[in-house]
Nucleic acid binder design. Structure first.
Length: 802
RNA sequence: GCGGGCGUGGCGGAAUGGCAGACGCAUCAGACUCAAAAUCUGACGUAGUUUCUACGUGCGGGUUCAAGUCCCGCCGCCCGCACCA
């Protein structure tokens, strides 16, 4: 009898062995880059939910290794950001110190998952040798005019006390802390991501990404096509330009609405309306975005002014309303209540005119709601009778010919608010000189080191804590040598993560962000694994960075991540997200001790479909542990018995290889694990008859299990008499001809209901199969047989009438 | 409101249009044991007249020889967007 499966002994042995004898060292092979989204090293450590993505990528990496690739599988730390800083504020300990402690702890935890990580490639975004290049990229963007300073109203998180980007606002709240976001006018560094809007949208089709993420990015970028139209303000020397996607409805414009935030909004008011307009502007400025989002009841005020419809000279009133966004298009819209739901609501509420200009049947009807469909153009002068779709295409050109408008496209995407008024981030490498203005820090002076500061506390004034360090702030202009001040804002946490994947392939390079030849060899990333929460944050930003780096010749590809996989979250038993405050965090440490790393790795995959959210079940891991234990016993007994291979064994291992390979390729990882269990049961049954399974078959099972349970497989592999590394062996292949059984079970149905199951030869003809089937269900074939269906290997269905 | 996804035993889940419930958890019974744990063997959708039959994949229709799977209409849950003109 075999000794029982002792996971602790086996795992300690092989962990020590692999430390001395790393696998995956042959760099002459073709590369495969499998990347995890790098973690933020928090003080809480990892829980079993964090493991899931890492186990998926590790198993996939090992699979690729066995398919003959040199696998790039690095790990690093996204270590700038508010939790470390908040901790520093609370305890007075420097974030660099606490970050280093956290990195050490999490590195140890991650090392428990796998011995495959290549720690020579480790990167840390807070390391000056890393953020030197984060700053370098900013300087290049500045030089190309893609980084610019601007004073404008931006999103402000009152809790983090910093400006944040559009992408950082999720449902009107700060992505980091959940506080409702307000607006604040302030000086900002912006990145012109909108210059890449078309490319970011169009190149999505090159990507093997989940459709959901493609859709989210595509909606976020939000391209639309339409026209700009110019309206003169009656009695003022002022032109209002609007953007519309429906220039075909221009004759139906019965009023205009301007966003109350625009400077012009106040200036338009007539003396009679002055008071009401000022009150409205004041009132809307007080509303938070959460408030504005929840309450969609239209509000507004008439300015007293009229604009002139450039097509027919009709005077239409100009209103202010906060349903018009100040930062999209021109902040002013022409309103066609007959054909736009929002304009319809507004017109109904304030009693404004509604003129239909499109009708499905060419007749004018009383409208109870906006008609947003297509049809024949009516009430529109010489446009009458046209097809509205056709007109929609032609109208911009007509407007252009008349000199009152032009074709235009627009994006929902806004430029990236890139400055943070916080301490723990990369200093923006800019110097403000009275004479020269904004000057980039020369590249040979990078990195601009983050100085020590007495108080990490955000000031709340819109100034960074760095502003208080006078001897750091005061400097000389790199251009004219005159007195100058350093930029005191820091970069958002997304800065380092936007390009970190590049650095892994050349992490120690002092001369360049990445050596071009090395980049060409190892990049881009073939498989990227992480949570879906970064769909329009990190994943959008890093695509933008990559395209920019392509444009300036740093890399030779335009998309960083060829394939993306989003693993589902693992929640507590009741489906509630694991968190320290809810007390439902499951730590992997005890589980490794009690069940072993191999069992935990396999249960992480078995718990549910990898892309789906799954609830942790504490007892579920028992099943996986039992499976490994049974496999261990089967293997050890078989090694001892050393029986010869039988045709049944051969057939079964080919079937197993076929099933496991297909499921693995399809990323159906939970069914890969259930497949191992299922086949193991079958082999145990077989072994009962034959006294054991031949060693070659056990070896094949080991090879397939090795990506999932590395330690137990290495041990059995050694006990099988091999003295080489299991991962140097190719993933097993199967022989199609060995998959088919001689006899197959066929379900026999009468009128679609299964009445019997027969066993026939796999080679049986249709006639033979149907004859055998009829025999089996003879007593039920009382009427006329109207149809006979035979699906080889599956089913016979006999349709009887009467 | 719009868009996307999902709905299968007590639970997690499995099923290229072809025997629904693989695999596992839990439960029950048996073996081993003084006993328990572990392990092994077996049962395990519901109902009934229990070697058999009927019903059964959120609800109602439809297509098909055959539907968890495809189509139409509902209901429920989850996610994303949220006045982008």
């Amino acid at each position: 009898m075999a000794v029982p499966y002792n996971h602790t002994e086996i795992e300690n042995k092989w962990n020590a062995y692999w430390k001395e004898h790393p696998i995956n060292t042959d760099e002459s092979k073709e590369k495969y880059y499998c990347l995890d989204m790098f973690p933020y090293p928090s003080g809480n450590g990892l829980h079993v939910g964090h493991w899931r993505g890492y186990v998926i990528s590790d198993a996939w990496s090992r699979y690729k290794l066995m398919q003959g690739y040199h696998v790039i599988h690095p790990m690093g730390w996204d270590a700038f950001g508010s939790p470390a800083e908040n901790y520093a504020i609370k305890t007075g300990r420097h974030p660099a110190v606490t970050t280093a402690e956290n990195v050490a702890h999490i590195k140890e935890q991650i090392s428990q998952i796998s011995d495959l990580y290549d720690w020579d490639r480790e990167v840390n975004t807070t390391d000056p040798s890393f953020y030197k290049w984060t700053q370098w990229i900013f300087v290049q963007m500045f030089k190309k005019g893609l980084a610019y300073e601007k004073e404008m109203p931006i999103n402000w998180c009152p809790s983090c006390q910093t400006g944040i980007s559009n992408e950082d606002v999720v449902g009107g709240r700060c992505e980091r802390c959940g506080s409702p976001v307000t607006k604040r006018n302030m000086r900002q560094w912006m990145l012109k991501i909108t210059a890449y809007a078309d490319r970011l949208l169009d190149d999505l089709q090159l990507l093997d990404w989940p459709e959901k993420v493609i859709k989210m990015q595509s909606d976020w970028i939000g391209r639309s096509y339409g026209a700009e139209v110019e309206f003169h303000v009656d009695g003022m020397d002022e032109v209002l330009t609007v953007y519309t996607t429906r220039p075909d409805t221009l004759y139906g414009a019965t009023f205009m609405v301007m966003a109350p935030e625009l400077k012009l909004a106040g200036e338009l008011a007539t003396p009679e309306q002055r008071e009401a307009v000022d009150a409205y502007i004041e009132a809307t400025s007080m509303r938070s975005s959460v408030d504005r989002m929840q309450d969609k009841e239209k509000t507004g005020v008439f300015t007293g002014r009229y604009a002139v419809n450039p097509l027919n000279g009709k005077k239409i009133p100009i209103w202010l309303s906060d349903y018009v966004l100040s930062d999209y298009g021109t902040g002013v819209i022409m309103c066609v209540p007959a054909h736009d739901e929002r304009d319809f609501d507004f017109a109904k509420k304030f009693g404004l005119e509604i003129i239909p200009v499109i009708s499905p049947d060419g007749e004018e009807h009383e409208l109870t709601e906006a008609y947003i469909g297509t049809g024949k153009v009516i009430n529109s002068g010489d446009w009458n009778g046209m097809d509205s779709d056709d007109l929609k295409q032609k109208a911009p050109h007509i407007l252009e010919e008349k000199g009152i408008g032009r074709k235009q496209k627009n994006f929902k995407l806004r430029d990236w608010v890139f400055a943070r008024q916080r301490y723990w981030g990369e200093p923006i490498p800019i110097v403000h000189c009275e004479k020269c203005g904004c000057v980039a820090v020369p590249e040979d002076q990078l990195p601009v080191l983050l100085p020590d500061v007495e108080s990490y506390q955000p000031t709340g004034t819109g100034e960074s804590p760095l502003a208080a360090i006078e001897d750091w702030v005061n400097t000389t202009c790199p251009q004219c040598g005159g007195p100058a001040k350093r930029e005191t804002n820091t970069m958002p946490q997304w800065a380092g993560s936007s390009w970190y994947y590049l650095r892994y392939v050349d992490p120690h390079n002092d001369e360049a962000l990445v050596d071009r030849e090395i980049a060409d060899k190892y990049l881009p990333v073939d498989m990227y694994i992480g949570g879906v929460e970064h769909a329009v944050l990190h994943l959008l930003y890093s695509r933008f960075y990559t395209k920019f780096l392509y444009d300036i010749g740093v890399v030779d590809f335009q998309e960083p991540f060829k394939k993306l996989f989003n693993q589902g979250m693992i929640t507590g038993e009741n489906g509630i997200k694991m968190s320290k405050s809810k007390g439902n965090v499951i730590s992997p440490d005890d589980l490794i001790r009690d069940y072993g790393c191999d069992s935990l790795r396999m249960y992480e995959l078995f718990v549910g479909p990898p892309e789906q959210e799954s609830a942790w079940n504490d007892r579920g891991i028992d099943g996986v542990r039992r499976y490994l234990s049974r496999f261990w016993t089967l293997a050890c007994d078989s090694i001892e018995a050393d029986v010869a291979r039988t045709p049944e064994m051969e057939k079964l291992i080919h079937k197993m290889t076929y099933d496991i390979t297909n499921r693995f390729d399809g990323f159906y990882l939970n069914t890969v694990i259930s497949g191992f269990m299922e086949y193991n049961n079958k082999f145990i049954d077989l072994a009962k008859k034959t006294g054991g399974i031949d060693k070659e078959t056990i070896g094949t099972m080991c090879l397939m299990l090795a990506p999932f349970a590395p330690h137990i497989c290495a041990e059995i592999w050694e006990r099988l008499g091999h003295d080489d590394c299991i991962y140097d062996h190719a993933w097993p292949t199967y022989d199609e001809s060995k998959l088919a059984d001689d006899l197959v079970e066929i379900a026999v149905q009468v009128n679609g209901k299964t009445r019997s199951v027969i066993e026939i030869s796999a080679e049986a003809s249709k006639d033979e199969a149907i004859a055998a089937a009829k025999d089996a269900v003879a007593s039920r074939l009382t009427g006329t047989i109207v149809k006979e269906i035979y699906v080889p290997g599956k089913i016979v269905n006999i349709v009887v009438k009467g």
